[in-house]
Design a binder for these strands. Structure first.
Lengths: 214, 214
DNA sequence: TGTACATCAGTGAACGCGCGTTCACTGATGTAC
DNA sequence: TGTACATCAGTGAACGCGCGTTCACTGATGTAC
């Protein structure tokens, strides 16, 4: 049996009654919906339709709508992590002051760049769900881990006092997160590329000085 | 004709067919809905019900749902302004360095305090709407105006270089806004009061140093 | 001061929508013998 | 190697929900004379 499915304007086809990998297909479909419409666009019905399947079929793989949204949220977070990881690989890994500073700045830039280019996924990643957020694991390729590593690098390079290290990751994260939010869904959306870049620079500079000065 | 209306568990009554001030009643009802359920809870039907009126009646006062939400958003923003204004009145108005710093810190504290105590209204205030955000008017009792004044005070007190003044308001706002978001609807919700206060202090310190150092 | 009547601000019923979810079902798959 | 049959993973129809919105209406108000 042929079932025709329309994804991104491309007509695909399914040759078997069984899908094969419906769970992942639904998550992928959910991510596409989130990309263009944010977390609110991630519905069982829409994801099933995008995957070329009946809404009922989704219930073979997810307990309910919240479970699908949880999975899509994880997917969105993974994409943020990947994007940041890719960006981080472009900056020097040295342990002198200059490189340490560059790495901190890169975590911020990578984060904001993802938010600006994929606002729907960004907001989906931070949608409040039932699932507990996984505890921060320094050293792992999570955004939070990368930030922690960069801050440790600052201390190691002698740019930041050890006594200023506690909670620095939350202060820096807050600042960068707020910028991402204001730029994408807040009153600062609609800024030109030039204005946006200026604000980003000003913010990152404030954060750097705030963490290394004092 | 008596119509019985239930608001906050208290049974009120309306003695005339005409409401008298339905527009404001709907905005107030919308604000109460936003308070407990965020912007998504602000529906024509729910607001009308809370005001003791038929959904149709709302259309005498608002073109459509978006118009009601716009009005409720303004109301939420006004409450944020009032709360911050009240808080600012408790800090000294001197023009020496210490007072200037205290005023900057107070804008941040007032903002976050409102977000934490009224998360639903806070998020409603920053909901993306059709209406253009009013341009920042320095000197007026808007949150943005208060922040701008505080930063100007920093420059006047000699704590901040003039060359660092541009965009400082957006950098500071971002940082404080992000903290508010993470604490209320993000992964930092659920922190204890003690932990929360520690993060707020750490963030405000980073911002102060970031703006006055360098 | 009284009254006819236009206008204003509500009511009540209904519409279509997309949603989550459930039910009884059926086609496809894979495994025991 | 072939086949009976349990199990798995879909279908199709339907439910109830709350939503925004529209329609024809009616009660209340206020104003011209």
């Amino acid at each position: 049996m042929f079932t025709h499915v329309n994804i991104l304007g491309v007509s695909l086809s399914r040759t078997s009654y069984h899908h094969g990998d419906l769970r992942n297909a639904l998550i992928e479909a959910g991510a596409e919906l989130a990309e263009s419409g944010g977390p609110a666009a991630v519905t069982i019905r829409a994801a099933a339709a995008k995957a070329g399947v009946t809404p009922t079929a989704a219930y073979r793989h997810f307990a309910d709508h919240a479970a699908l949204l949880d999975a899509v949220r994880d997917q969105a977070m993974n994409r943020l992590s990947s994007a940041m990881g890719r960006y981080m690989r472009t900056v020097p890994k040295g342990d002198d002051a200059q490189d340490a500073m560059a790495r901190l700045r890169a975590t911020g830039r990578g984060y904001i760049q993802f938010a600006v280019s994929e606002p729907g996924l960004f907001h989906t990643a931070f949608t409040t769900g039932t699932k507990k957020m996984q505890p921060p694991r320094p050293g792992t390729p999570s955004p939070f881990g990368m930030l922690n590593d960069a801050l440790d690098g600052l201390v190691a390079a002698g740019l930041m006092h050890e006594r200023d290290r506690p909670l620095a990751e939350l202060a820096a994260w807050s600042a960068v997160h707020g910028l991402a939010v204001l730029l994408t869904e807040g009153p600062l959306r609609g800024l030109s590329r030039r204005e946006r870049d200026a604000v980003i620079d000003r913010s990152l500079t404030m954060i750097e000085r705030g963490l290394t000065g004092g």
